[in-house]
Nucleic acid binder design. Structure first.
Length: 419
RNA sequence: GGAGGAUUCGCAUAGUGGCCUAGUGCGCCCGCCUGCUAAGCGGGUUUCGGGUGAUACCCGAUCGCGGGUUCAAAUCCCGCAUCCUCCGCCA
């Protein structure tokens, strides 16, 4: 939810933001007029209601015959109040719908445009050069690390088993991510992955991404696509106090995505799957600290990628590709040798006050007033990283070197076929 | 799956149609008193919205959520949610 007061005062900033996303600035004017209508309905209701309450008080203490006269009067008034209230309800619904139609205000620094208008901030490491590289599926299958055929047999396409060292490799990576998170001040969390509608709604995932989400109709619960959802909803309706330091959480969870509309894309291997595991960083902080915290989250992502010894680049995602809640987003993309291009491994978003306003997460400022907090999230490791690890660290004989940072967790330096 | 109980201000509680403008205690904030500390005394303290670019003032909403009855609902009625207890079933 955007800041309505700010929108009233600076509607042009929001119109510009809409244009930058490639969305219509008319939505801003629709909201402004819905707001005006709602407020005028509210005012007429409130004055009628005030009169009704005043009369009610007089009736309580009135003598018998005066009481009769007053009762006559209040009966018609009651009808008017009811009608005014109905108008308030109707205009409020229209107003809310208009409000939800507007995504977060895009940061000034974010590039304008769509998916292909990102700006490359830096490239780190040398693009791996391998003669005749094998892809992760071929490597993983040969080494007994993953089994997509049986994944499909049991669950359908885009499902897989991580087997043997493959399972251990993922655990090693996620454990390392958790350890790094704890070292950098994150509270480790294993959250629920089934959530109620208000949690999903509050994090802004029921808008344009509704098709992406698994929904369990019998139980009215959603399977989360990221632990961002339960971590954001964790403090919903709460006041976090002074919040002089960011409040940081690291969630380890399975994630579920329907991948509707991605037919034919990345059908080979485990790049795009319906279920994967992830360690996600999540921060609550003051809005004025959010940009700095965003840089911090990005640096932690890069630290993890460097521990995996992967060549990657950092992109500043363009406004049109931001998603509803984000005002700015950085992706880290690792080099994938068999594809000859960079693929997204991490994503960190600054949602400013957009999520927290919906979820009603506050803090107390120096004057003791309640203010809306800012929220940020970022990826610290996911199943997809295995793709980049296998492909970049493959050796000519078909084995895969284990990055040094993972060796203590995995107990071996090379992944070899089972004898 | 079934039965019962609960849900009121940060916490604990009072409140069974109009004197609720939701009381009290604790906590917290401000002040007074005061060698120091503690205690004591006085005042303040739900949240959201509007008037309104406002920490004052006024108005409205808000007693888990949504409906209903009524001139009037924390209070009565219906539905739902969550938590607790018990019974049944179960990995």
């Amino acid at each position: 939810m955007i800041d309505l007061r700010a929108l009233r005062e600076h509607p042009d900033a929001y119109r510009d933001s809409q244009r930058k996303r490639g969305a219509s600035p008319d939505a801003v004017d629709a909201l402004l007029s819905a707001d005006a209508e709602h407020r005028s309905a509210l005012q007429s209701f409130e004055s009628l209601r005030a009169e009704q309450k005043g009369l009610g008080k007089r009736i309580a203490g009135a003598a018998a015959e005066e009481k009769q006269a007053l009762l006559e009067r209040t009966k018609t008034l009651a009808a008017e109040v009811k009608e005014a209230e109905a108008r308030v309800t109707a205009t409020a619904a229209a107003f809310e719908a208009a409000g939800k139609a507007i995504p977060n205000l895009v940061a000034d620094e974010a590039p304008a445009g769509g998916e292909d208008d990102y700006v490359v901030l830096r490239e780190v490491g040398e693009r791996t050069k391998i003669e005749d590289p094998k892809d992760h599926l071929e490597l993983g299958t040969a080494l007994g690390l993953l089994d997509t055929e049986r994944g499909a047999k049991v669950s359908g396409s885009r499902f897989y088993y991580l087997t043997g060292d493959g399972a251990l490799l993922q655990l090693a990576m996620l454990n390392l991510a958790m350890q790094q998170a704890v070292e950098t001040g994150f509270m480790p969390m294993i959250p629920p992955v089934l959530v109620r509608p208000d949690a999903m709604e509050g994090t802004g995932f029921l808008g344009e991404h509704a098709d992406e989400i698994y929904y369990l109709e019998r139980d009215e619960q959603y399977l989360v696509g990221t632990s961002e959802v339960p971590l954001a909803a964790y403090h919903s309706g709460e006041n976090l106090g002074e919040l002089t330091q960011p409040r940081r959480y690291a969630g380890w969870s399975s994630c579920f995505r329907r991948e509707a509309g991605s037919y034919g894309k990345d059908t080979r291997g485990i790049i795009r799957v319906h279920q994967f595991d992830k360690v996600e960083m999540f921060s609550y902080c003051r809005p004025e600290d959010a940009a700095a915290e965003h840089e911090q989250l990005l640096s932690y992502e890069e630290r993890m990628l460097q521990k995996m010894e992967l060549p990657y680049r950092v992109i500043d995602v363009a406004a049109g590709d931001l998603g509803t809640s984000a005002s700015r987003k950085f992706d880290c993309e690792a080099w994938v040798p068999t594809q000859g291009r960079y693929r997204e491994l991490t994503s960190t978003s600054n949602c400013t006050t957009f999520q927290a306003r919906r979820l009603n997460v506050k803090y107390r400022d120096e004057q003791g007033r309640n203010q809306v907090a800012a929220t940020l999230n970022g990826t610290l490791a996911t199943t997809r990283w295995i793709v980049a690890i296998l492909e970049n660290h493959q050796l000519p004989d078909g084995t895969v070197a284990v990055p040094k940072a993972l060796q203590p967790y995995l107990g071996k330096e090379v992944l070899e076929p089972k004898k």
